Simulated assay, not measured.
Amino acid sequence: MDRQLLEHSLASVDLPDDGLTVRFYQILFERYPAVEPMFQRDTKIQAEMLRTAIVSVIDNLDDAEWLTTNLGSLGKRHAEMGVTAPMYEAVGECMIAAMAEIGGDAWTRDMTAAWTEALTAVASLMLAGYPGGDSHSGN
């Protein structure tokens, strides 16, 4: 993965007050309204937690053990909440849409490709934490 491109592109779209992740949730709920009831918390709090998680993943890209352990554990919690494998694709799609919207003309195809690769890897590690490690759990 291109860590430098991920860091640079995130810095270019990381708005104050968790604006990127707030916008992500707006897009997610617009495109996939059926998932909104899964979020019982104030989305502002959820957005702050998501931003923290994204930064932590980028900070630990070179630490396979950290990624496997932490994302697997996060995946297990998501499985318990009823998150299914196709939802990870929706999340990736909506996160990149929010980034591209905020980035405007400065957002590039290379940035989209780098984030697609990163979010796919994150989803795979999270799905590996599902009971039995079955990436098709909940389908």
Rank of each mutant, 00 (worst) to 15 (best):
D2W: 11
D2E: 15
D2S: 15
D2F: 02
Q4P: 07
Q4E: 15
L5K: 03
L6T: 11
E7K: 15
E7D: 14
E7W: 13
H8F: 02
S9V: 04
S9N: 03
S9R: 00
S9L: 00
L10N: 09
S12Y: 10
V13F: 01
D17M: 08
D17F: 09
D18S: 11
D18G: 08
G19E: 05
G19S: 05
T21G: 08
Y25S: 00
I27D: 02
I27Y: 00
L28Q: 05
L28W: 07
F29Q: 01
E30R: 07
P33D: 09
V35Y: 03
V35H: 04
V35A: 05
E36M: 06
E36N: 09
P37N: 01
F39P: 02
F39W: 04
F39C: 06
Q40L: 13
Q40D: 07
R41F: 03
D42T: 07
D42R: 11
K44E: 13
K44C: 06
I45S: 15
Q46P: 03
E48I: 02
M49T: 05
M49C: 10
M49I: 04
A53I: 08
A53N: 04
I54F: 02
I54H: 05
V55H: 08
V55Y: 03
S56I: 09
V57Q: 01
V57I: 13
V57W: 11
V57P: 10
I58R: 11
D59C: 11
N60K: 11
L61Q: 14
L61K: 12
D63P: 03
E65D: 14
E65S: 14
W66Y: 14
T68V: 14
T68I: 07
T69D: 15
T69Q: 12
N70L: 06
N70Y: 05
N70G: 04
N70A: 12
L71S: 06
L71N: 00
S73H: 10
L74I: 06
G75W: 12
R77Y: 07
H78M: 03
E80V: 04
G82I: 11
V83L: 09
V83I: 15
A85P: 12
A85R: 15
P86R: 13
P86H: 13
Y88W: 14
Y88Q: 14
Y88M: 10
E89H: 14
A90P: 02
G92A: 09
E93G: 09
E93Y: 00
M95G: 09
A97T: 06
A98R: 00
A98G: 02
M99L: 06
A100E: 10
A100Q: 13
A100H: 07
E101H: 09
E101C: 04
I102V: 08
G103M: 00
G103V: 05
G103F: 07
G104P: 12
D105V: 14
D105N: 15
A106G: 07
A106D: 12
A106K: 10
W107R: 02
W107Y: 10
T108G: 09
R109F: 08
R109C: 14
R109I: 11
D110H: 05
M111K: 03
T112Y: 12
